[in-house]
């Protein structure tokens, strides 16, 4: 029985091997060698110059994930409360932006926010004067929340929709206030959804490169931008690989910490 189940996983394992394990080994190889192929730690040593950029990226990604959770949780909950027929439509609405390329959506946001953009033109037309909306960290966060929100709502919804209504009723019967039902019953039961939602927002956000380049100013370069230019213009594959490796390890550590703090409840979704 068990070997049969293993056999079922074979296609995915093959996929994993070719497209994840092998590239990972290549990244590690490049990170620990120099341009001539000699083993060196210099690439990783050079990372200390980029430490502030790593920290900035982590912070912006964490803020984005938190905002996504704050917006996404009530939304996901509201969707599950809607009648089944409407749920499908609401889910469709959430998914709709994902049908469009995220580059295009980011450019649209630029057109909306820039100094000569749509919002500022409206503001100045009604006599309120122009405000700087773009090229600040908040604009980058807005861009990431905008792009990654569906990835938060979907896993939350799939967990909340399976929530046993009887448990809520039981809690109410036992005299829980609405707030206590939320805090003591619904929230703990949806932890797996929160974890996978936060993961699905945080991980792409921390390594994002296009959004920060378009919406951020020169002082909000994210590590993804730097990695991109290492590969695209500097042709320094070794430095780029070292950065990717460090970023990957940081992300793993973050995930590890998060899973530890919620380790008591079942986290199967990851």
């Amino acid at each position: 029985m068990k070997s049969r189940v293993k056999l079922l996983a074979a296609p995915y394992l093959a996929w994993l091997l070719i497209f994840t394990i092998v590239p990972l080994c290549v990244v590690v190889y490049f990170a620990f060698t120099d341009a001539d192929g000699h083993v060196t730690l210099a690439n990783l040593g050079a990372m200390r110059d980029y430490l502030p950029t790593f920290a900035d990226s982590l912070l912006l990604a964490a803020i984005s994930a938190a905002i996504c959770l704050l917006i996404g949780y009530p939304t996901a909950y509201a969707i599950t409360r809607a009648p089944a027929s409407r749920q499908r439509f609401l889910i469709l609405l959430i998914m709709l932006p994902m049908c469009m390329s995220f580059l295009l959506r980011t450019l649209a946001l630029v057109a909306l926010l820039e100094d000569q953009g749509i919002l500022n033109n409206i503001l100045s037309a009604v006599g309120l004067g122009r405000v700087t909306l773009i090229r600040r960290p908040a604009a980058v966060v807005a861009g990431m929340v905008y792009n990654y929100l569906p990835y938060m709502i979907m896993p939350l919804h799939s967990v909340l929709v399976k929530l046993d209504g009887k448990l809520i009723e039981a809690a109410q019967d036992l005299g829980c206030s609405r707030l206590r039902v939320l805090l003591r019953v619904i929230l703990p039961l949806s932890v797996p959804g929160i974890i996978s939602g936060v993961t699905m927002v945080f991980v792409p956000a921390v390594s994002t490169f296009y959004i920060s380049k378009k919406l951020g100013g020169t002082s909000t370069a994210m590590i993804g931008d730097i990695i991109e230019s290492q590969f695209k213009t500097s042709y320094n594959l070794n430095a780029g690989a070292a950065m990717s490796l460090v970023l990957m390890i940081i992300v793993f550590i973050c995930m590890g910490i998060m899973n530890r703090f919620t380790g008591d409840s079942e986290v199967d979704l990851l």
């Binding site: 430490l51 502030p52 950029t53 920290a55 982590l58 230019s229």
Partner: peptide, 23 residues
């Protein structure tokens, strides 16, 4: 050319640095 391209990357990356303290 490696020197200037690395220096240019560092210029672009030089963040405010305040977020390090938060971490």
């Amino acid at each position: 050319s490696n020197f200037i391209s690395e220096a240019f990357n560092k210029i672009k990356a030089s963040g405010s640095g305040w977020s390090v303290w938060i971490f």
